[in-house]
C-alpha cells in the first residue's frame, strides 16, 4: 500500500472551515446559555458574544458564498448517487474489516457522496434555519416596521432557531467523529489543516 498525497483544500477553504468551526462551536456554547441551559458567561455577556459571533459568521458566509460562486466550488455540493451505496456499505460494514475507502477525493471532487449530502443539508437546511430565525430574532424590534409582527411570534422564531441549533449540535458530533474515518484517523484533519490529503 503506497501513500499518496493530493492537494484538496485551498487556503481560503481551510480558513473558512476553521473559523466557521470555531464560530459555530462558540455559538452553540453561547446560544445554549442564552437558551437557559447552563450558566457560563452570564446571560448578558452570552447575548453579546452570541450576537457578535452571529455578525462575524454572517460576514464570513458572505465571503464564502462569493468565493464558492466565483471559483465554481459550489459544484462540490451537488448531490450525486454515484458510489452512494458503496459509501453506506463502507461505513456500516467495510470500515470494520479494514476495507479500502471506496471514495478517492480529488481536487475536483473533494467530498464523498454522503458528505455532499450532509453538507448540503447543513448549507440548505440547518444554516438557513439558523440564519433566518436568528435574523428575525436579532431584528425583533423592527417587525412592526417590516409588517411581519402579526405573522411572527418570538416564541416560534426561537423555537426554529433552537431546533436549528440542536441539529447543528448533532451534525457537529457526527462530523467530528467522521473525520477519523480517513486513511488514518488523522488524515482528514491534517488535510483540512495543510490542504494535503493522504490517500491510499
Amino acid at each position: 500500500m503506497t501513500t499518496n498525497k493530493i492537494y484538496v483544500f485551498k487556503r481560503f477553504e481551510r480558513f473558512w472551515h476553521w473559523s466557521q468551526a470555531m464560530l459555530i462551536i462558540f455559538m452553540l456554547i453561547t446560544g445554549f446559555e442564552v437558551h437557559g441551559s447552563y450558566p457560563l458567561f452570564g446571560f448578558a455577556k452570552a447575548v453579546d458574544l452570541h450576537t457578535l459571533s452571529a455578525w462575524t459568521l454572517i460576514g464570513l458566509w458572505v465571503f464564502a458564498i462569493f468565493w464558492h460562486f466565483t471559483t465554481g466550488e459550489w459544484k462540490q455540493y451537488i448531490p450525486t448517487t454515484e458510489k452512494m451505496i458503496a459509501m453506506i456499505r463502507f461505513y456500516s460494514v467495510g470500515i470494520f474489516k479494514g476495507a479500502p475507502h471506496p471514495f478517492r477525493p480529488t481536487t475536483l471532487k473533494k467530498h464523498n457522496p454522503l458528505q455532499r449530502l450532509a453538507y448540503l443539508g447543513v448549507l440548505l437546511l440547518i444554516g438557513p434555519l439558523l440564519w433566518l430565525s436568528g435574523w428575525f430574532y436579532l431584528f425583533y424590534a423592527d417587525w412592526q416596521a417590516w409588517g411581519v409582527d402579526n405573522v411572527l411570534s418570538l416564541e416560534w422564531v426561537a423555537l426554529f432557531h433552537t431546533a436549528g441549533a440542536f441539529m447543528m449540535l448533532a451534525f457537529l458530533i457526527a462530523h467530528v467523529y467522521l473525520t477519523t474515518t480517513g486513511h488514518t484517523p488523522t488524515s482528514h484533519i491534517r488535510a483540512m489543516l495543510t490542504g494535503w490529503e493522504e490517500v491510499d
Partner: peptide, 10 residues
C-alpha cells in the same frame, strides 16, 4: 404573553 430567552423554552 412574552417569550423571554432563558426563562422560556419549549
Amino acid at each position: 404573553g412574552v417569550y423571554m430567552p432563558s426563562r422560556d423554552a419549549n
